[in-house]
Every structure is written in C-alpha cells, then in structure tokens.
Design a protein around this nucleic acid. Structure first.
Lengths: 136, 136
DNA sequence: CGTACTTATCTTGACAGTCAAGCTATTTCT
DNA sequence: AGAAATAGCTTGACTGTCAAGATAAGTACG
C-alpha cells in the first residue's frame, strides 16, 4: 500500500512534468523559461538576485537565461538607479501574453479537476496537497 | 480560488521537483539518471527501445545516458541473442543499492504523509491524486 | 531466394540548463 | 580610507535533449 502510494506520487509528478512540457512545447519556449516568466509575472519586477533565489539557480545561470528571454523580447532588463550594481527584470507585452496564456491553461486544468472531483472533494484535495507540499 | 488552487498545484510541483533533486544530489547521480534506474528497477530488464518509450526520450538520448550509467557501474547492458539489433539493460548490484536507497526515501516520505494526514485522509488523498493525474 | 521495407540502435552536431570559480563594479561597514 | 560584502557577469565543463543520418538486422512479399 505504501508501495502503491509511492507509485501514485511518482506517476503524478511525471504526468505533471510532461503536461507542463507539452503545453509549453507549442510556444517557442522551454519549461524553464516559462517558469521564469511565471515568477516574474507573479512578482511584477525583481532583481536578478531575488529572481535567482526564487528559481533556485545561480546568478550565472540566470544571466544567460535572462539574456535569451530578452533576445526573444519576452523580458526587459533595466538598471536600478539606486544600486548601480543591480538590475530589474520585468515582462514585456509579449511576455505578459505568454504568461496570461499559460495561466489560462492552468485555469482550465483546475476547472477540469473541480468538475471531476466535485467542489467539496476538490477543496479538501487542494488543502491536502498544500499540507503534503510542506512536508517535502 | 481557482487562482489559489493553481498556485498550490504549481507550488507542489516545484517542491517535489526540488525534493527529488535534493535527495539525489547527495548521491553521485542526477535526477534523470535516478529516474532511469527507477524504471529499470521496476521492470527488471528491458530493451533500449522500451526504456526510451517509458522515459519519453529518443533512443539517441538514451544511448548516451545508458553509457554513463554503465560507466558508473549502475547499469549493465547485454546483447539480446534473439534479436541481434537489440540490447537489454538491467541494474547491477550497485544500481540496485541506489534504487533501494531511493525507494526507502520515498517510503519515508509516504510515511510522513500518512502520519500527517491520517490513514483515512491519506487514502482519499492518493485516490484523488491518481484521478487528477489521469486528467493531465 | 532476394529485394525492399521496417526496426533497433548509435553517432554527430546543435542547443539549453546547470554549476563552480574567478572577475568587476559597487556598496557597506568600521 | 580601506576592507569586506554584494550584485552581476564570464568562462569552462558537464548533462540532457533532439533531429537527422548511418548501420545492422529482422520481416514481408513476390
């Protein structure tokens, strides 16, 4: 039984992984890049350092990723006038479009889940999901 | 609320991602490699083609990954005597040790979840997790 | 049987993501 | 002012990934 739960968990993770990869593959963008856009979209505007911490990557990694997204015109990078070592990153219009788009797909998925489980069950499911997340 | 569920789902995915990366980082192995070992461990012995399908990667990708794991002596690759184009891959003793080890960590996590949610709730949680997985 | 098609795998070339280590420019602390 | 800390960048190395093309072996069909 513990065995079975373990499999369900792993299977869930993989499905979600490929779901995310799938919805992103149609756009001209990778999952890691979409994730970056998501974090920036959720926070409005942030420094490279802050962003690297939220993404869990080094600033060196981030420098390159941001470059690519700036080249694709999904991101804008501006100097911070207060701290001259620092930069701010934010979404461009095109970046926001990508962000909204992805957001909608998540919304649809959530709707499907609610419709399938029912409002009550969905409520407790997400509650438990949140609890479990904190255990990891 | 749909918004909130969406965030929980994404947050869960990221936590699990970094949990998996974390438990694997101590070993001399990547997450993708551990995943490969897991699939081989679950199936005993399989052909390159079968494995590539289960992992969702091309055979070209797999060739390289398997090479590295053979070099690390976690995997063994043997010719199929029936179909001479084909190979079988299976875990070595060391590979099994890694597999078991990882398996135990999953087991502990599941125990934590059961202890935190309670048997009943855990039961329905995993049931729902499985249902949701099928929607993706 | 022999030719053509299919299948299993490998190789190569190109790129993204990743880190560690080391560098520069700035800021902060004493 | 000088030293230490911080933000970001660059480089070098490695993994994961694919597409395209090559090879070798199995299969189907006349």
């Amino acid at each position: 039984m513990k065995e079975q739960y373990s499999n369900i968990l792993v299977e869930f993770f993989e499905r979600m992984s490929s779901w995310e990869n799938g919805v992103v593959a149609d756009r001209d963008i990778s999952l890691a890049q979409m994730h970056l856009l998501e974090v920036v979209g959720n926070h409005g505007k942030l420094r490279m350092k802050e962003l690297s911490e939220k993404l869990g990557v080094t600033t060196g990694t981030l420098t390159v990723m941001v470059h690519r997204l700036v080249a694709k015109e999904y991101l804008a990078k501006m100097k911070d006038t207060d701290d001259k070592r620092s930069y701010f990153v934010k979404l461009t219009k095109a970046g926001e479009t990508e962000y909204d788009n992805h957001h909608h797909l998540h919304g649809h998925l959530i709707e499907d889940i609610i419709n399938t489980l029912g409002t009550e069950t969905a409520e407790s499911f997400f509650h438990n999901l949140n609890t479990v997340q904190e255990l990891m």
